[in-house]
């Protein structure tokens, strides 16, 4: 009975696993192979295997672009955490209709295409946009933020804020109210209860949210391309241009592999840290 049940379960799982194998695992494997061809504009995809395409990533412009991408992602994560934590606290203390409306406000943007939201920021930040026109209407010198790193940072922060709020609120919701009562009963002030009990218990949510935001903003394309453009080139923008403009597929594949490995390391590291932390807290 149990064995046939397992066999059926395996069969039921198979189609979905096949999709992952054919549409994710195989293509990524193929990118590994493509990365081993000799790189260059309009690369013919013959010869090799060699590691020249990876070596090429060490020369300009890739290191500085990678650094900028990393800086933008880290800043986004910091901003999203600072802005998201009070919101998550407020949300987790809200009940009823207020909570439903807040959840709607947080979730709705996630259902909108990132292109549409980036377009909204273009309309706001452009010299001919809301900011520029308002300045002009007030007879102030016209200015805009479009095509700057600041614009990219602003839009990235907005687009990842909902994820961080949800991740932190999930942790906050799990805190046992008795724990807070106990802390207070033992004489801890509310500030001390907050710092010594609430903040540490949101660490799993923070780690999961932060790793997701970091990886997500490293991988973002629409926002940096539309709001930064040439002024804030990111790693993924380079990959796109390698494919569509210089047809240097080996270098594009190598850059993709580097990004994938880096992202996996980040996610894996955060998961490990989170597990070790909860093992220490709960002794399981």
């Amino acid at each position: 009975m149990d064995r046939s049940r397992r066999r059926v379960a395996g069969l039921l799982l198979l189609p979905a696993l096949l999709v992952v194998a054919v549409v994710a695992a195989a293509p990524i494997g193929l990118l590994f192979r493509v990365a081993l061809y000799p790189p260059g504009p309009v690369a013919p995809l013959t010869g090799g295997p060699e590691l020249d395409s990876f070596a090429g990533l060490l020369s300009a412009p890739y290191p500085s672009v990678a650094l900028r991408t990393l800086r933008l992602s880290l800043l986004t994560t910091v901003l999203v955490t600072l802005l998201g934590f009070p919101v998550a606290l407020f949300l987790s203390r809200s009940r009823g209709l207020s909570r439903r409306i807040q959840t709607l406000l947080i979730v709705s943007p996630l259902l909108m295409s990132v292109v549409v939201r980036a377009y909204g920021w273009m309309l706001i930040l452009g010299r001919q946009g809301f900011v520029g026109e308002t300045l002009a209407a007030l007879s102030l010198p016209r200015a805009g933020l479009l095509h700057t790193e600041t614009a990219v940072l602003l839009a990235l922060t907005e687009s990842f804020l909902p994820f961080m709020i949800l991740a932190l609120a999930a942790s906050l919701d799990r805190i046992d109210p008795d724990l807070l009562a106990a802390a207070r009963g033992l004489g801890a002030s509310s500030a001390r209860t907050f710092l010594a009990v609430v903040v540490p218990l949101t660490l799993p949510g923070f780690l999961a949210g932060a790793s997701f935001v970091l990886v997500g903003s490293l991988s973002a394309y629409a926002i940096p391309a539309l709001l930064g453009g040439a002024a804030a080139r990111t790693f993924v923008m380079e990959i796109y241009e390698l494919v569509t403009i210089s047809f240097d597929w080996p270098t594009a594949a190598a850059a993709s592999i580097v990004l994938l490995l880096f992202a996996s390391a980040l996610l894996g590291g955060a998961a490990l840290l989170s597990r070790r932390r909860s093992a220490r807290t709960f002794g399981t």
Binding site: G10, L13, S256, A263
Partner: peptide, 29 residues
């Protein structure tokens, strides 16, 4: 319902595409 061993691992595999960079996945496909 399947009482499968390694359920968590299977779930992780099925959810993993969500954390892959979209453009990279598109390039792979």
């Amino acid at each position: 319902r399947g009482s499968l061993p390694g359920r968590e691992a299977f779930l992780a595999v099925l959810l993993s595409p969500l954390s892959l960079p979209g453009l990279v996945l598109g390039l792979g496909v």
